[in-house]
């Protein structure tokens, strides 16, 4: 079957639609998913196609959206709950962390929670301090939950479908900045990407760039620029913050002996901290330089464009970090 060149939002829509056609127990719920056609248009046309039973508009009630989705999943349905943006998921933290992630363990396997919580994520576009979070590492802190963060339309389709078919709860974040970006997507209705498996997005031998989601784009741009100077970067897209594909990181690191972690999130207690710790604990004998971290600056995001952009990571910051450890 041929690939189709479509934006990430359409790839997500394709994945969700295929899974809803495939399995009657899959349904979507969330704010504006139905009549409004989805805030980010991922559920466009769903209400018309699947009806009110399976496309459920909710009140603005993030605690209840996440909590009711947990209950429905325990009872045997396969909810795909949309939290409009990840910023609002702070209101759902208890239901996600104390219930979705713990119920299977706490009751010793009596209940399963086959749930996907989708949320748009990301900094930029002057959304300001409360609407600009990329807090995926916070969620990845907790065992019992999977956390997926696709970087391309193809990955978005395969990862979302795998998440819906899995019997564990998954927090699935989608970078707002990546929604409109196109890429080739397999039309195969059984195209699945395994949970917890990362992907080499570019091969190289001098430095490993460990990243995910929007960081992949900055890393690829940086690798392109550095290649002109004869520096070959390997771009490791982890795809999942949990389970973490540490094997893929270590394999690449054994080859390059140097790493830069690239993330959109904040620097303290972060993805970068975790990867740096994993490398120094497991790869000490292979290390030729300290692990560098490129992340957002440690400030709340301001409104004014000029200073907002200063706080964000970009390809040039990745290039600079690589040069520091060569």
């Amino acid at each position: 079957m041929a690939d189709k060149n479509i934006p990430m939002r359409e790839a997500l829509r394709m994945a969700l639609r295929e899974e809803m056609i495939r399995d009657e127990s899959v349904f979507v719920m969330g704010e504006e998913v139905g009549a409004w056609q989805g805030t980010h248009r991922v559920t466009r046309g769903f209400l018309q196609e699947f009806g009110e039973k399976r496309v459920r508009d909710t009140p603005i009630s993030e605690m209840a959206i996440a909590g009711a989705a947990v209950g429905a999943a325990m009872a045997g349905l396969r909810p795909v709950a949309e939290i409009m943006t990840i910023n609002f998921a702070f209101l759902s933290l208890d239901a996600i962390i104390n219930h979705a992630a713990k119920i299977h363990y706490m009751f010793n396997g009596q209940f399963k929670v086959p749930l996907v919580i989708r949320a748009a994520s990301g900094w930029g576009d002057q959304a300001t301090a409360t609407h600009s979070h990329t807090p995926e590492p916070i969620f990845a802190h907790f065992p019992g939950l999977y956390v997926g963060c696709p970087a391309t339309p193809r990955d978005a389709k395969g990862m979302l479908k795998a998440s819906i078919r899995d019997d564990n709860p998954v927090l699935f974040t989608e970078s707002i900045a990546l929604y409109p970006k196109p890429g080739p997507v397999p039309e195969d209705e059984d195209f699945l990407l395994p949970i917890g498996k990362g992907d080499i997005k570019r091969e190289g031998k001098h430095v490993t760039l460990v990243t995910y989601a929007r960081g992949v784009e900055w890393s690829l741009q940086a690798a392109e620029q550095l290649a002109k100077e004869g520096v070959e970067c390997e771009v490791v897209d982890l795809r999942w913050l949990r389970p973490l594909d540490t094997d893929l990181i270590f394999e690449s690191f054994k080859k390059t002996n140097r790493a830069v972690v690239v993330e959109e999130s904040l620097p303290h207690y972060s993805f970068g901290s975790e990867i740096a710790a994993q490398i120094q604990e497991n790869m000490f004998d292979y290390m030729d330089a300290p692990v560098k971290r490129v992340s957002a600056m440690d400030v709340p995001l301001p409104y004014a464009k000029e200073i907002e952009l200063m706080a964000l990571p970009n390809a040039q910051k990745v290039v600079d970090a690589v040069r520091e450890i060569l």
Partner: peptide, 27 residues
């Protein structure tokens, strides 16, 4: 909890089980 008795459990976060009840009722 006892799944076979349709007893879905005791929950220790005050109010936390209420939306779970709504979700089970949705099923």
């Amino acid at each position: 909890a006892s799944r076979e008795h349709n007893f879905w459990g005791g929950y220790a976060i005050v109010g936390g089980h209420l939306p779970l009840a709504a979700g089970i009722a949705l099923e």
